[in-house]
Amino acid sequence: MLGALRKSDAVPAAELPRLESRWARGALANAADGNVLAAHWDAMPATLRQDPAIVAAYAERAAALHWDDAAARAIEQSLDAHWDDSLAALYGRLSIGRLDERASRIERWLAQHPGSPGLLTSRARLQYAHGDWPGAEASLHDAIDRGASSDTWELLGDGYAANGEDARARIAYANALRSARGDGLVELPTTSQAQRFATPRGPVDTNGTTLQ
């Protein structure tokens, strides 16, 4: 189709790369199975396979099709060749297992890119998956200090909520919205402040049920 557009001059030449990228992402995202996905990927020019958005489309579809190794390998090879923070963030977000392998690779990358908010957020996701909430909390704060997106604030809120820190969770969620809008952020309360303003709960029975 692009060849026909080039010949007909129906689309300005400057628009063709954008259209090519969009069609490539669409083909990958809609691949019916792993064989179709691999065929689309292998047929793409090398320049397209270096585009972070296209790598992300391939990795996300591969993960959805349970091609975990292919999804991880595509991101790893792309980041080793050309660093991109959005791909670094996706690396921890994909549900592809390989927790220990990904955690080790993230630590190696952090030695080279210590200020990457996407990579720090990925580290936090894997730390949390390993049951290390204190480590995940510290990594999320590091990511936020380095300009992480609103998604990182939302993750922080999820962690606080899961650990019963309701006052901090509410502020983290509010900051996620503020960050998305570009508004000023609210400082998180200290532990003692959070406890002071925590929502009162009724007495708890021996089964852990809150009694009203």
Results as ranks from 00 to 15, higher is better:
A169Y: 03
A81Q: 15
D85M: 01
T121F: 03
G147S: 10
D80H: 08
L120Q: 12
E15R: 09
L28Y: 06
R61Q: 05
G164C: 05
W153C: 00
R170D: 13
A129T: 09
R170C: 00
A24R: 07
T191P: 03
A29D: 03
R102E: 04
G97P: 07
A43G: 11
A143H: 07
G3N: 14
Q195M: 09
A63M: 06
E137S: 12
L94K: 02
G92L: 06
A174P: 06
H141S: 06
Q112D: 13
P189M: 00
A148T: 02
S86H: 14
P52M: 01
H40C: 07
S139F: 09
A59G: 02
R108L: 11
S179C: 07
D145V: 08
A136G: 11
L126H: 02
R108G: 03
T210N: 05
D100E: 12
Q112K: 15
R123N: 05
V204P: 05
H113F: 13
A39E: 11
P117Y: 10
R168N: 09
S139A: 14
V11F: 02
A167K: 04
A103H: 15
E101L: 08
A32E: 06
A136C: 04
Y58Q: 09
D205P: 07
T152W: 10
D69N: 07
G157N: 08
S104D: 15
Q127T: 08
H130G: 08
A74F: 14
Q50S: 08
D166H: 06
I171H: 00
H66K: 15
L19M: 12
S104R: 15
T121I: 02
A176P: 04
R49M: 01
W23S: 09
D151V: 11
Q127Y: 06
H113P: 05
I171W: 04
D42N: 14
D80P: 04
N175A: 04
E101F: 05
R98E: 12
H141P: 06
S179Q: 14
L155S: 00
G34R: 06
V204Y: 08
D151F: 15
G159I: 12
E187N: 14
L48I: 13
Q50F: 00
R6Y: 12
G97T: 08
W23C: 02
H82F: 10
A39F: 11
A167C: 00
R105S: 01
R170N: 10
R61M: 05
A174N: 04
G26S: 10
Q112V: 12
E60R: 15
R61H: 03
W109L: 05
N207Y: 13
L99D: 11
P45R: 13
